[in-house]
Amino acid sequence: MSVPWGTQLMAQLPASLPTQLTGHHVVLAAARPGGPSCLEANDWICGEYVRTRSQELLDATLQHIGITAASVVIGLLIAFPLALIARRWRAAAGPVLGLTTVLYTVPSLAMFALLTPVFGVSVSVVVTGLVLYSLTILVRNILAGLEAVPGEVREAARGMGYGSLRLLFGVELPLAIPALVAGLRIATVSTVAMTTIGSVVGYGGLGNLIASGMEGFFKAEVLTASVLCVLLALVADLLLLALQRLLTPWTRTQARARSRARRAARVTKAVA
């Protein structure tokens, strides 16, 4: 599928076409009344490519979203207990943070290559690699969020009879959500970008299109897939931001109250 359409078209053109016309653009212009096709010209931007290959693009995008979502969700499920362990036992914090940082330093191509003998050539290689990368950011951010919970709040909750489990999920976790979502956004955006490298084992979502476009020297395929990839990262980032606003309504009322107070102060000053 990596051969540009124009090449295939050229092969199918009947030999009876006027041969005195030189240059394949002219030949194609004769074959199609709509002018030279952007596929034939191998343009960077090509609406025809998007139209004719929409199914392929959709499949690649869905695979991309699936790999990213699975990696981030699994990463979050592993990072949360790791952060709790690092908080509970000080001695464990150093090794946990150190190990995740070492994993972060390993280049993604090497990470996928090292995981290949473990999982074979499969989607698990890509997801596992991406989970390991996301751990670094998620563990640190969850830990920072939990540690930033004011001591008085914790004391007050305990005084109200909160057990440690209810304290964690009812008080500390909600207060840590801004830090957690900040980490989740960084992890998601970099995971979307890194999923493309999964194309070395054939599971790279839009990265597969970039790789096949490179082999076939198909500019429209590469550019379209790259742009979709960046858009995907932006959309994911905005969705997570919206999720945070939804989950932490109190930060908005606080901000509103603060700005109202400021406005009131300004008014008083103006009156005085």
Binding site: I197, S199, I210, V230
Partner: peptide, 15 residues
């Protein structure tokens, strides 16, 4: 810089 895939930029520049 985080949102743009390195692989994509490499291939785009190569083409």
């Amino acid at each position: 810089g985080r949102a743009v895939p390195t692989f994509a930029v490499l291939v785009l520049l190569t083409l």
